[in-house]
Design a protein around this nucleic acid. Structure first.
Lengths: 221, 221
DNA sequence: TGCGGGTTGGCAGGTTGTTGCCATCCGCGG
DNA sequence: CCGCGGATGGCAACAACCTGCCAACCCGCA
């Protein structure tokens, strides 16, 4: 415990518990947080969230908090709303990308945390303090940040998509052919496919199989 | 509480806890259990499983236990093995179907339990004691049972599929085109598509989107 | 009424995915 | 050696899906 810098420039940490013990304190006084997240789950164990929440609220406005989320998240109206709520609550900036990114946090441009693959057992995280490496991560983040689009702007774009998305997802999930699905929705095949295309774009999927997986991941089907 | 027959011929029960309280005792003395399940999760709350387990073991051989599972389950080697283990342990008969079925239990041809949709909140179950209705359910079950194929037979069929399935699923999940995927696996496009087709058949999916959803549901991607 | 921006749906031409057919190859027992 | 069954891969025809283009339409606004 104590300062994270006492270890190697790169430390592998297993599980969120451990991660929190190592770097949790950094968030308390952070003035610059950059974050890539794929869902709304907090990175730290739920039971510790309260402390962080408090610290976050205290520095609201004083700190610069940038968060990037996957676009698929916005297809669920509830999630989208929750996202906006949190943003307002913390005075954070939220942008949306359609690219697939591994989860990342950079605190004060000094410490980078990269999430590893999520498979059996606790998830692993790489905690990086080596300045040049962190700088590289920051640079990547900045680039992605620039290409990402503001939550409100994106939200407006998908508002209409979202209206039809549930029905489209439902039909796709049933294995319906475009022909039949379009008829059921009272749309032309052309427009139905437009919807599917928008949906896939929003999910960042390049094939329908992949779209199915992502949709299921987000609990949309 | 008490005898399930005291209520209406059809009772809606919310949550597995409640279900167990209502009909748990039936399993203790049952000599004929018919069951459709979509995954390996036990129907009763985990903590009560021990009692049932015990009762089940005692009547092993004495009772007739028939279980039908979805074929997709077998794509995961671990699940398939666990399935066989449980079957041997309980002296049950296990068959596999590729059709989509809602979960069902019929005890001693007297009480039928149909699982409702799984959405927010606890899952609901219909407990049916009305004889004609139960008979109808039994009749449906018997038909499905006849058309289903024995676990061992099916297992042998998919053994080879399973060997390649993870790789194919992986590539599909990445949104790879058949062309590229086949190259990566060192297969011809034709054979790769054969694999995908077998996979979809095993998942009971009629479109790749649906296959993606099912695969994700089973945790195969 | 006329204009401008956005949505729709038909069409065409493309790519991707699905399936049957068949020649070929491999391994195995006769 | 042959014959056999199963797996493979090429080919082809077809179905399904994707997309650019454009005319038609709708709606709000001046």
């Amino acid at each position: 415990m104590g300062d994270v810098r006492t270890g190697d420039p790169v430390t592998i940490v297993r599980g969120e518990e451990e991660l929190f013990r190592r770097v949790g304190h950094l968030f308390m006084s952070a003035t610059d947080v950059a974050c890539v997240a794929n869902d709304l789950a907090l990175w730290v164990a739920e039971r510790r969230a309260a402390e962080l929440e408090e610290a976050a609220l205290q520095r609201a406005g004083a700190a610069r908090v940038r968060k990037i989320y996957r676009s698929g998240l916005l297809l669920d109206a509830v999630s989208a709303q929750e996202l906006a709520r949190r943003r307002d609550r913390h005075g954070a900036q939220v942008r949306i990308t359609t690219d697939e990114l591994s989860e990342t946090i950079v605190v004060d441009r000094k410490v980078a945390i990269l999430a590893g693959e999520r498979h059996e057992g606790p998830r692993s995280y790489s905690v990086i303090t080596q300045p040049e490496t962190v700088q590289g991560v920051v640079s990547l983040f900045d680039t992605v940040w620039r290409s990402a689009v503001d939550l409100d702007v994106y939200d407006a774009q998908v508002a209409e998509i979202r209206r039809l998305a549930p029905a489209v997802l439902d039909l796709l999930g049933q294995g319906a052919k475009d022909e039949a699905a379009a008829r059921k929705l009272g749309l032309s095949v052309r427009t139905y496919r437009r919807r599917v295309g928008e949906l896939m774009a929003a999910l960042g999927a390049e094939s329908r199989f992949q779209a199915g997986v992502r949709a299921r991941e987000l609990g949309l089907v």
